[in-house]
Each structure stands twice: as structure tokens, then as C-alpha cells.
Amino acid sequence: MNIFEQTHPSRRRYGLAAIIGFIAGIVSSFVKWGAEHPLPPRSPSDLFNAACAPESLIRAAEQIDCSRNFLNPPYVFLRDWLGVIDPNEAVYTFAGHAFNWVGVTHIIFSIVFAVGYCVVAEQFPKIKLWQGLLAGALAQLFVHLITFPLMGLTPPVFSLPWYEHVSEIVGHLVWFWSIEIIRRDLRNRITGEPDPEFPLSARAH
């Protein structure tokens, strides 16, 4: 099996793929969120002391929370890499609940990955293997197990609890599965043609 097999150039719809990816990214972000409710990835009792020191510049001592449940990857990324003073500051409120910058980052993260996946799928169809589950597993590997620890957004990978790995792999699999379902359905409906999976040497239909 050639994992770098390519579709015929005449059948690629990059612009449409980006639009569909934007839609799939928003919808799938709620799927990813939903997976974390029955399987929370972090515990309030797990401390992240290495990332806690800057909190003294934001909050009073009695308000500082050093748990990984609070110092989650989007929070630490916004605070340490983008310089957002308080990532938990409300963007808007709905029914008395605040939606903060961490939530916005979660959606943007989902959109970026969904757009990338949908655009790449136009040229390299093997990324869609197992209805997107392969891409979900790769995202879990490279983002949570490699990139996040290197950026200091999580503790070293070997110190992460088992339940975080379970939560993240399940969440990433259902997340990318939902992206693929939306991508394939919308693309087929809009173009009126089957999803392109023909090699570069094949003739366009």
C-alpha cells in the first residue's frame, strides 16, 4: 500500500475543502469537548508546579490553583506563549456561565486541524484511512505526546497519568471521525461526485 498515493489533480477542490474544514472544525470541537465529560483528562489533584509560578502575577495567593485541571494546555499556551494576561477572562456570558479564551482556543485549534485534514485529503486520500481514525491517532501522538511536553504545556510524557492517555486518545479518535463524516458528506453533496480516491496516474472521470 502506497501511503503517499495521490488523487488526480483535476478532482481536487482545495477551496471547498477549506470551507468544509472550517464547518467541520466548529462542529467537531463540540464532539471533542463532549468526550472529555465522561472521560476527564486531568484531575484537580494533579499538580503542575512547573507552570504555576507565573500565577502569582495574575492572582492573589489564596486564589492560585496549581492543578493541571486549571493549568490545562490551552491555558498555559495562552499565558506563556501568547502573553494573554488571564486566559480565563470571559469572552461572553450565556445563561450566567462565562465562555473564556481557553474555550476560544479550543475551537480555533479544532478548526486549524480540520481545515488541514480536509485540504490534505484532497491530494493524499490515505490520510482518510479508517474513516479518519488514523489521522486522529497521529494527532494524539504528535501533539499531546511530543509537541505539548516539548513546549512545556504538560509535564514530561512519562509522568502523565494513565487516565489522561485514555481520555485523549478516545477524544482524538471521535474528534477526527466526526471531521471525516462531515467532510465526506458535505463534499459529496456539494460536488455531486464521489470522494476522489484515484491515483495520480488515473484518468479523471
Rank of each mutant, 00 (worst) to 15 (best):
M1L: 09
I3S: 11
I3H: 03
F4S: 15
H8T: 14
S10I: 11
R12D: 02
Y14I: 12
G21D: 11
G21S: 15
G21N: 05
A24Q: 01
I26V: 06
I26N: 04
S28W: 00
S29M: 05
K32E: 11
K32M: 07
P40V: 11
R42E: 04
S43M: 09
S43I: 13
P44Q: 12
D46M: 09
N49K: 14
C52I: 06
C52W: 02
C52N: 06
P54L: 06
P54F: 13
S56L: 13
R59W: 02
A60H: 03
E62P: 00
Q63E: 08
C66H: 08
C66T: 04
N69P: 00
N72T: 05
V76E: 01
V76G: 08
F77K: 00
L78M: 04
W81F: 04
W81E: 03
P87I: 13
A90G: 06
Y92A: 13
Y92V: 03
A98Q: 02
A98F: 01
N100K: 04
W101Y: 05
W101H: 01
W101N: 12
I107V: 10
I111L: 10
V115L: 07
V115A: 07
P125Y: 06
P125C: 09
W130D: 10
Q131M: 06
Q131K: 13
L138D: 02
Q140V: 11
L141P: 00
I146S: 15
I146G: 14
T147S: 15
P149W: 11
P149E: 10
V157S: 12
F158D: 07
S159V: 04
Y163E: 14
E164L: 09
H165R: 02
E168Q: 12
E168T: 07
L173M: 11
W175Y: 06
E180N: 05
I181V: 12
R183A: 14
R184I: 11
N188S: 06
R189C: 05
I190A: 14
T191A: 12
T191S: 15
D195G: 13
S201N: 10
H205C: 13
H205P: 14
H205M: 10
H205A: 08
